[in-house]
Every structure is written in C-alpha cells, then in structure tokens.
Design a protein around this nucleic acid. Structure first.
Length: 268
DNA sequence: CCATGAACCTGGTCGC
DNA sequence: TGCGACCAGGTTCATG
C-alpha cells in the first residue's frame, strides 16, 4: 500500500484511536523488525502525543522520542479488532487500554525505528511535495543541476519524499514526459506542469484515501478509491485516454513502468 | 555522480 | 492439478 497518500491515510486513520493513550511495550514477532533499537529500550508507560507522517514513515510521537514505521511493500498498521493475531504479524504495540496496535507485513521488509526526533530522517530525505518549500523553481533548479533518468530521480527519496512507482508513472503521463527522459533536458514548461501534476495527483489521492487494490479492504470496510482514478498504472494493453494509443509496460530504473509512447516524449 | 542488479521475503498469477 | 518462472506499490548495498 505504501506511497505518500497511503501512508498519510494510515496515519490519519490510526490517530484518533491511539492519541492520548499509553504504549506499554513493543513486541517484535519477526526478529528483524526493530531496526535500530531493542524492545527493552521502551521503558514504562509512554503517552502517544500525535501520529503524523514524514516521507513514507508513519511517525508516532511520544514525549521523549518517536517511533517511525516504514511499511515498505506489504506492511499494514492498524488497531486490532478481536483477539486473533494475524498470521504475518511482525510486531505488536501493547496499549495500556488493552488494545493492540498491529504491524502486519507479509513480505517482512517493513521496519520500525526509534529516534529522538526527526533529524536523522530529515537529513536523508528531500522536501515534502505538498509543502510550500517544494516549488516549481526548486524542481527546475534541481532537475537542471543533475543528469539523471527522470523516473529514478523522482523515486529517489533523498531527492523528493513520498513518490513511488504508481504516482511517478501517473505524474509523468499527466505531464507528457517519458520516464526515460534525462532530468536536465526536460523543458522548463514541462517541469512547471510536472510540479503542478505531482501536487494535484497526490492531493486527489489523499482525498480518495489512497490507492488500494480490489482484494484489499482497508479497515472497517474503508478502502482507498484512487485506484478508480489511475490513468496509466496497470493499464498496459488498454488505450491511452488522451490519444487511444496502446499503453505499454516497459522497465525503467529497474521497475515496471507504464507509458504511452505517443503522448510521452523522451527528452534526452 | 550515475546506472544496474542483487538482496531482503512471501504469495499470487500465468503458461505449459 | 501441478510446477516453475516471473512479478509485486520499497530500500539498501556492491559494483562498474
């Protein structure tokens, strides 16, 4: 599930259930899940002050530290209903209220981190695409100063936070830019359009509670509806809605990539 | 500085 | 039905 809109949706969803409550412990079920700390480092009862998002991390804020949860490919974070612990549970956070916050992760790539503050995460991540410091001027300057494959660059979290395979493909298609373009050769006009499209697509997806696929319902019957809005991702073989050319699936930057070769021009 | 491929894992799908 | 190959919305590391 996990690009910016999905992570934001999870953080928004969990927040009202846990805010103001006390965490007693974090139990690793899969032994590698706690990346940079030991479960015994969590002492006593710790009050959850807030649940937020930075990049693709869900940030659980406590008074003296924070817990950052990265869902990677298949992670899910939710308050358990009932008593059966799901098969692929990676970790369980026990609340004083008796509730359990479950980190379920089929492929076990997800990790939980403990930090004093956001410093270390901020150092390794680019701007938030929906914040004011992500401007078209910034994007222009930083595209021109690099000579990189555009898709690889947009996926690079140290460059820009939060985009993943779905939203990069959608943003590039909306901007008529081929994913094999080189950043410094993309015309200014298209960079400005791309900037606008990234923000619009992410905002719209957050409103729709993100993209989830048919087989996965979110929680309490809620599911993300942005899957209905996808224009290019997963549409290989179908006609492009702008030009009716057949959408292809190719490999770019090591990832499956959806492209309309008629609409999307290669700048290189 | 940049690109590529492997590694980390499990499960679903597709072709034979 | 069975089986192998390949794929998956992410990130990191080694190598050239």
């Amino acid at each position: 599930m996990p690009e910016l809109p999905e992570v934001q949706t999870v953080a928004n969803h969990i927040k009202p259930y846990v805010i103001g409550k006390y965490v007693l412990s974090i139990n690793p079920i899969w032994d590698k899940v706690l990346d940079n700390f030991h479960h015994q480092d969590i002492k006593g009862r710790n009050k959850i002050l807030d649940v937020t998002r930075r990049a693709k991390f869900i940030i659980i804020n406590f008074e003296k530290f924070l817990i950052a949860v990265h869902l990677r490919m298949t992670g899910k974070l939710y308050v358990l209903e009932g008593t059966d612990i799901p098969k692929h549970t990676s970790a369980i956070m026990e609340l004083e209220s008796g509730e359990k916050l479950i980190f379920e992760d089929t492929r076990k790539f997800g990790r939980i981190y403990k930090y004093d503050d956001l410093m270390l995460i901020n150092e390794k991540h680019g701007p938030e695409p929906l914040e004011d410091d992500f401007t078209s001027e910034w994007l222009l300057t930083n595209f021109k100063s690099r000579k990189r494959n555009i898709k690889a660059l947009l996926l690079d979290q140290s460059f820009l936070s939060g985009l993943g395979n779905i939203y990069v493909d959608e943003s590039l298609w909306a901007s008529n830019i081929h994913p094999n373009s080189i950043s410094c050769y993309i015309p200014k006009k298209k960079i400005i359009i791309l900037h606008k499209n990234i923000r619009e697509i992410l905002s719209e997806s957050i409103e729709q509670l993100g993209t989830t696929f048919i087989s996965f319902t979110f929680l309490n019957g809620q599911s993300g509806n942005y899957s209905n809005e996808l224009k290019i991702f997963g549409k290989q073989g179908a006609p492009c809605i702008k030009c009716s050319n057949t959408i292809e699936k190719i490999k770019v930057a090591g990832r499956g990539t959806h492209v309309c070769s008629k609409c999307q021009k290669i700048h290189k």
